[in-house]
Design a protein around this nucleic acid. Structure first.
Length: 387
DNA sequence: GCAGTAGATACACGGGTTGG
DNA sequence: CCAACCCGTGTATCTACTGC
């Protein structure tokens, strides 16, 4: 059992004093339930169904008291009975209901006092006992007095006497409205008295014997409809706004679906386009790779050529130096020969001159070759730099 | 004798039922 | 469906009673 349920008030006892056929009667409830058994017409429903709404809100209308909804019997009759039978013209009665908290020994008692006079307005007062005193145990709704016949009799407390007995331990009110508000405040705790009234109305509807007599769904539907509070504009507004929002969302969704279909078409075209572009770029890439490979190879070859030409140039330089020194040696020899026997050496001179001429030819030939090699070398160097 | 209270009476009003 | 009616509620006013 949850804490909240353990905190609620549950009917524990109900009691009647000078009401209907009861002088002083208390019914005990078990776990908030009471079983009444008796033959048809013995007064089970008259007693209880009249009693419960009356004690809960103090409304004394005859149609409220009668479970069949007629107003044949007034509250006055419940207290005084038929004039010829009871002989009573004035009587004070009490009805009370004791509530207990589940699993706790705390009690609240609510009740009403009624003073009826034949053919006159009934006096009404309602009370609540909050300090835990319990009727029939340590609080009594009557006092014992010696009657005219000399016997001790129970005399119900008057309104004023009850007020004094309850004192600070509860409240006494004198109008039906105040009583209803008081019961709601201490027992039910509805935020407004109207809500509490709706509950009582529902109780009245549900006790209707129509429920068992005429068990048609339409009748049940009417009873349930009548017992439910009507919806206010404030209640309905969130609902209508939600429906309106749903319409808007639906429309928005439709637009989005249409947009999506259009965008999908566009996307397909774009995909094709992009695939084509990708193919082109991939072709370019492959070609660039092969170009790169070829250029690298060419670069390597040219680098090798440069190396060769460099060594050739170096060799030719050495050749020039050695030919220069040979020329020097021949010049010296020529000087020696010119200073010696001219005739004897004339022949030798001519031979030497021929050799010299041959040498000069060789030299210019070698220089020509060197220039060509150098030109080629510079050309290659420029080509590498530009890569 | 006085002030406060209870009781009686009249009346307007609202909720609910009845009967044409 | 509506006017008539019944009944209870709340209020105002007057009268009678009671305790100091």
């Amino acid at each position: 059992m949850s804490e909240k349920l353990a905190e609620r008030w549950m009917i524990n006892r109900i009691g009647l004093l000078n009401f209907w056929y009861y002088d002083d009667e208390i019914f005990e409830f078990a776990d908030g339930r009471l079983l009444l058994r008796g033959a048809n017409g013995s007064g089970k429903s008259v007693t209880m169904q009249s009693f419960i709404p009356l004690v809960l809100d103090g409304n004394k209308s005859p149609e409220r008291l009668d479970p069949f909804g007629s107003k044949a019997r007034k509250l006055e009759d419940y207290l005084l009975g038929e004039e010829e039978v009871s002989g009573l013209d004035e009587r004070t009665g009490y009805l009370f209901m004791e509530f207990k908290k589940e699993k706790k020994d705390s009690y609240i008692t609510i009740g009403i006092g009624l003073k009826a006079k034949r053919h006159q307005n009934m006096d009404f007062w309602g009370f609540v006992i909050l300090d835990g005193r319990r009727i029939g145990i340590d609080f009594f709704l009557y006092k014992m007095e010696i009657g005219d016949d000399g016997k001790r009799a129970k005399v119900p407390l008057t309104k004023k006497e009850l007020k004094n007995r309850i004192g600070e331990g509860g409240e006494v009110v004198e109008s039906q409205k105040e009583y209803m508000e008081m019961v709601n405040k201490y027992i039910f705790g509805f935020s407004s008295i109207e809500e509490y009234d709706e509950l009582i109305k529902l109780l009245i509807q549900l006790r209707s014997p129509k429920l068992s007599k005429d068990f048609r769904p339409t009748v049940i539907y009417e009873i349930m409809k009548a017992s439910l509070p009507s919806l206010t504009d404030d209640d309905l507004r969130p609902l209508s706004e939600t429906i309106e929002n749903m319409d808007q969302i639906k429309m928005h969704l439709d637009v989005l679906y249409r947009n999506m279909a259009a965008v999908k078409k566009l996307k397909n075209e774009y995909d094709n386009y992009n695939r084509y572009i990708l193919y082109e770029k991939a072709g370019d890439l492959v070609k660039a790779y092969s170009d790169l490979y070829a250029s690298k190879k060419e670069y390597d070859n040219l680098t090798k050529d440069i190396e060769n030409y460099r060594s050739t140039i170096a060799n030719l330089g050495n050749d020039i130096i050695s030919l220069e020194s040979e020329r020097e040696a021949l010049k010296k020899k020529e000087e020696q020969l010119s200073s010696g026997d001219a005739k004897r050496t004339q022949k030798e001179l001519l031979e030497e001159e021929d050799r010299y001429k041959q040498y000069l030819e060789d030299k210019s030939k070698k220089e020509e070759e060197l220039r060509n090699k150098q030109d080629k070398y510079y050309g290659l160097e420029r080509k590498i730099k530009n890569r």
